[in-house]
């Protein structure tokens, strides 16, 4: 059986414009290929048989909007994904921030929080947790609620524990959580320095100055123009000599930031070396 194409390209434009008109969410600059898959997927899960049905529900039922956003944005994330990246944070990037009396870190598009807890663990282990504050933001209030609970499915924990060791961790990851049936609950002291908050990269402004911004596997869902806009937002939100970290297949090359930043040791980490506007 062929995956049905419930929504056509022209209809996507109409729907996105509707949403931007009725609500304060603008998805018109999201990557079309991925968004189209998500829209067809939500039609199948929520049993809309036509574009008109989905459109009617969205426009007339504001309570449906949150679910819609949660389903069309991708909320797949992992702890210590790309262990070598976390190793670089552990051994070089975060220690270099230790000279600041106060370290501010922004995790943009944190989804259900796995990265935020990973960073919290790193900070604890290198003794910088108490002088740090992690802002973990997402467009999606639903995933932030989950993130704030610190409860994750037990299934992937074995993979996360392996990632953690490969990232230079020397303990057993399980010292940070207690197991409850098919879930694990991370100790609440890990989140005492994490602030979970909604923030929409498309429309919200800079809200602080950071020494490190992580935005990994979020920009892949944006088109080039929107990516450039978000890069500007990050640039406005980074202190001089601060760091911007992206996903394994994302780059600031070919963007407006290219010449103001220097890539760190082949990792997807860029240091802000020029701050004249």
């Amino acid at each position: 059986m062929i995956e049905p194409d419930i929504i056509k390209d022209a209809e996507i434009e109409v729907l996105l414009k509707d949403i931007a008109d009725v609500y304060d969410y603008d998805f018109t600059q999201y990557s079309k290929a991925s968004l189209k898959r998500r829209l067809n997927r939500i039609c199948i899960i929520d049993k809309f048989t036509s574009f008109a049905e989905l459109r009617y529900r969205l426009i007339n039922d504001a309570s449906y909007l949150q679910r819609f956003i949660e389903e069309i944005t991708v909320n797949v994330t992992e702890m210590f994904r790309d262990p070598l990246f976390y190793k670089a944070l552990r051994t070089d990037i975060l220690p270099s921030l230790g000279t600041y009396p106060f370290i501010r870190i922004w995790i943009a598009g944190c989804s259900t929080g796995e990265e935020a807890y990973s960073i919290a663990i790193l900070l604890k282990e290198i003794g910088l947790y108490n002088q740090a504050l992690i802002y973990a933001t997402d467009i999606n209030p639903g995933v932030l609620e989950k993130a704030a609970k610190g409860i994750f499915a037990a299934g992937p924990m074995r993979q996360y524990a392996e990632n953690y060791i490969l990232s230079g961790g020397s303990k057993d990851l399980s010292v940070y959580y207690i197991s409850q049936y098919d879930h694990v609950r991370f100790h609440s002291d890990l989140k005492s320095k994490i602030i979970f908050s909604t923030h929409n990269l498309v429309s919200d402004a800079s809200f602080n100055e950071f020494q490190l911004i992580l935005c990994r596997n979020v920009l892949i869902y944006f088109d080039k123009d929107l990516q450039n806009r978000v890069f500007k937002l990050f640039d406005d939100s980074l202190q001089p000599l601060g760091y911007l970290a992206l996903g394994a297949k994302e780059t600031i090359r070919f963007s407006h930031l290219e010449h103001k930043y220097r890539q760190w040791n082949g990792e997807k980490i860029w240091k802000k070396i020029s701050w004249e506007s």
Binding site: R38, I220, D223, K249
Partner: peptide, 13 residues
């Protein structure tokens, strides 16, 4: 994924 005939997009869904 293919954004169009010239451009590839990636997706971590």
């Amino acid at each position: 994924l293919f954004e169009d005939k010239e451009q590839i997009g990636l997706d971590f869904s």
